[in-house]
């Protein structure tokens, strides 16, 4: 029995060995030839290895999720000033924001530290931006966006009206849609009016744009109506001239004086009658 089995095995071996040729009768090669001849649609690589592909995608998704859950947390910081309060705030990049009363500044601390210098604001804020060529600093109000590299400027957002005053350097002032954009340099100011959707560079005298911060008002041959405007803005009151002789000019400096004293001085100097309405 064993001999017979061995004999069979020997026979088979001799049979196969007799015809054996290296590389002949290869199923994979034969299939390639067959598929080419018969134009068998070979499934795409991705389909053939769909299980592996699915596993890789799943892994990527897991890692992305994990990444977002651990790293991409946002941490919003909101700072607000009350009525009559002025606050000096330093941002993580050591840029400075001087907030006038009733103003709000808001930014994502994590994103900011990563180099995305973006803040949102309401009210009136004077910015002194640390220069960083690689990451522009941008301030958004409801209607506008200001982008700078490193300058100081002031944004005064009053609902439908946003005023920009550039103290030093150069800024880009744009509306939220990006339709209008102005490039402004030191000393220039511009205003965005929402109802007109317009952005106008104003050549007006900006001497007193920052007086809320410096507590100083300077007038240099300034027309009386502009004086009244600046005083109204600074003291938050409405001032009118009781006399119809408004075509006068004032040259004066006031350093943190009470309103009634200022009015008294102006009235005596110019022979006008300014009162708080």
């Amino acid at each position: 029995m064993i001999n017979k089995h061995e004999d069979k095995f020997e026979q088979r071996i001799r049979f196969v060995a007799k015809y054996y040729r290296k590389g002949a009768i290869d199923a994979d090669k034969a299939w390639t030839k067959f598929a080419e001849r018969e134009k068998v649609k070979q499934k795409y690589f991705l389909f053939r290895y769909r299980h592996a592909v699915a596993a890789v995608i799943l892994l990527c998704l897991t890692m992305t999720t994990w990444y977002f859950m651990t790293n991409e947390k946002e941490e919003w910081l909101v700072l607000t000033t009350a009525s009559g309060q002025v606050k000096n705030v330093f941002l993580p990049d050591s840029s400075m924001a001087l907030m006038a009363e009733n103003s709000t500044i808001k930014y994502d601390l994590i994103a900011f530290k990563k180099g995305s210098r973006e803040v949102e604001m309401k009210g009136k804020i004077f910015f002194q931006v640390k220069r960083m060529e690689s990451s522009p600093f941008s301030v958004s109000t409801v209607n506008t966006v200001v982008t700078v590299l490193g300058t100081s400027f002031q944004l005064d957002e009053k609902g439908d009206r946003t005023e920009l005053y550039v103290n030093t350097g150069k800024v880009a002032f744009a509306d939220k849609d990006g339709k209008e954009e102005l490039i402004l340099t030191a000393g220039m100011s511009a205003v965005y009016k929402k109802d007109e959707a317009s952005m106008i560079s104003e050549p007006k005298d900006n001497t007193n744009a920052l007086s809320w911060k410096t507590k100083e008002l300077h007038f240099n041959n300034t027309p009386l109506k502009d004086v009244i405007g600046d005083l109204s803005e600074y003291y938050h009151v409405k001032i009118i001239n009781r006399l119809e002789n408004g075509n006068k000019h004032l040259t004066a400096s006031f350093n943190n004086l009470p309103l009634d004293e200022v009015l008294l001085i102006i009235n005596q100097t110019l022979d006008v009658h300014l009162v708080v309405e």
Binding site: I25, A27, F34, K41
Partner: peptide, 12 residues
């Protein structure tokens, strides 16, 4: 066609 391919490779 995948099944055909499998058959081909195992039977060839």
């Amino acid at each position: 066609s995948e099944e055909f391919e499998r058959n081909f490779k195992s039977l060839y």
